[in-house]
Every structure is written in C-alpha cells, then in structure tokens.
Amino acid sequence: MDLAGYRRRRLVDLAVRGACVAATLVAVVPLVLILGYIVVKGGAALSPAFFLELPKPAGETGAGMANAIVGTLTLVGLACAFGVPLGVFAGIYLAEFGDNWLGTVIRFCSDVMAGVPSIVSGLFVYALVVVPMGRNSAIAGGLALAMLMLPTVTRTTEELLKLVPNALREAALALGVPEWRTTLWVVLRTAAPGIATGVVLAVARVTGETAPLLFTSLNNNGWADGIDQPTASLTVQIYQYAGSPFEDQQAQAWAAALVLVVVVLVLNISARILVRHRVAGAR
C-alpha cells in the first residue's frame, strides 16, 4: 500500500479540519467582541435616568431615552397588530387550502418578500401612507415593520399547522364540528405555542430595524401625542447619536445599544429554548 501517499492525504485532511475550526473561531470572535464592547460601554452609561428621562441637549446631565423605549414598544406593538393576524391567516390558507397554484404563488411571493431590503419597505410605506397623511407617524413605522414580519409569520404558521396530525382534524370533524371551527379551535390551538415562537423571532428581528423607520416614524425628541405623530425609537436614536460629536450622546447610544441587544437576544434565546422544549416534549 502507498503509505507515503496516505501520510500526505492525512495531512491534507488534518489541514482542512483545522481550517474549518479556524473559520468557526473567526466567526465567533466578532460576536464576543461586539457583545463585550456593548456591555462595557453601555453598562457604564446606563442609569435609571436612561429609562425615565427624555433626551436633553448635549452637555446637560440626566438625559434618557424613555420616549424612545416607549416608541419602540409602540412601533413593535403596531407591527404585531398589523402583521400577526394577516400572517396567521395567510399561513392557515397555505396549510389548509394551499395545495393549488395560488398557494404556490403566495408561498413564492412570501419567500421573495422575505428578501426585500428593509429600506425598500420604508420607501413603499412612505409613498403609500406618509405622503397621503401629510406627516410621519407611528402607524407608518408600524406598517413598515409589519411588512418585514409578514413572511416569517406566514411561513412559520404554515409549517406548524402542517405538523398537526390529521387524526386530530378528523376527530373534530367526526364530532360534527364545522371545518372552520376545527381549524381555529383545534388545529390552530395545537400549533399555537410554535406559532408564538415564530412571532417572537419576528418581533426580535423588527425590534432592531432602523432603515424602514428613518422616513416613516422618523424621530421625536419628546413624547409622541398619538400614534399618528412622529415617534422616537431606540434604533433611530442610536443612529443619530452615533454620528454625534458629543461624548455624552455617544455614551447614550451605547446604553441604548445595550438595552436593544439584551432585548433582542433574550427574545431569540427564549424562542429557541421554547422550540427545543417543544421538540423534546414531542419525542
């Protein structure tokens, strides 16, 4: 046997394995660096005032982002109000009635929509909502975010409904329950925890979005008077303070980044733990 040749082959094998491990480390390092930096910088700038006070001009102490925190919650809430029912019903259609050409078209469009740049959805909502309304508003921002949630919610709902065993549907139908009730009260309820996981992931994604808000909800240095008014958000606030020459505003940006990252990562991690529990329970 060709042992010298084999030694070379084994070296190549080891080299490639090493390269793959190195690649993985290269990817993990930035995450650790980014998170570490945010914790250090943001932690130093975080104070109770951050959660309780409004932004103040540079130089004044005790500035906060209370309005941006409430604003982000408002925007995400509106996005859910628009996006979740729409996505869930679309998902129901795809799972229960979607074995036809329309289903294929919708599925394809929803996949394609998932790849539309978020700034384009901002432009779209600007043309369709902001221009006719004559001003920026939380509604517009919420709609732009809802467009980004829609594909995720739709496809998650579809996939989870398809996992519900047919025996369950048949059991309900055999009791004389009409199909729509069966779908809503039996099938949807069985799949609800999974769909909730999908919604949580979608929420985590849009909470961190900035680009679609830049010209829809814009920003606001104080409290918004209603959801038809320009509204502050953590992400837009970070964007503006990042370009600020004042150090205390930069520090505020880091603090906001820390809050945002914690929220987004907690949402992500809890969604994944939910999934794992569900999968483990199903075994």
Binding site: L31, L33, G208, E209, T210, I238, A253, A257, V261
Partner: peptide, 17 residues
Amino acid sequence: FVVELLAAVPSVIYGLW
C-alpha cells in the same frame, strides 16, 4: 447557536461597533 445569534444583532449596532 452562537453563529445564529450573530444574525440577531441589529444592523445599527454593527454600524455603531
């Protein structure tokens, strides 16, 4: 899991960093 968390970090924070 860690690699997927990289995807969860918001874009504006990558910009800041």
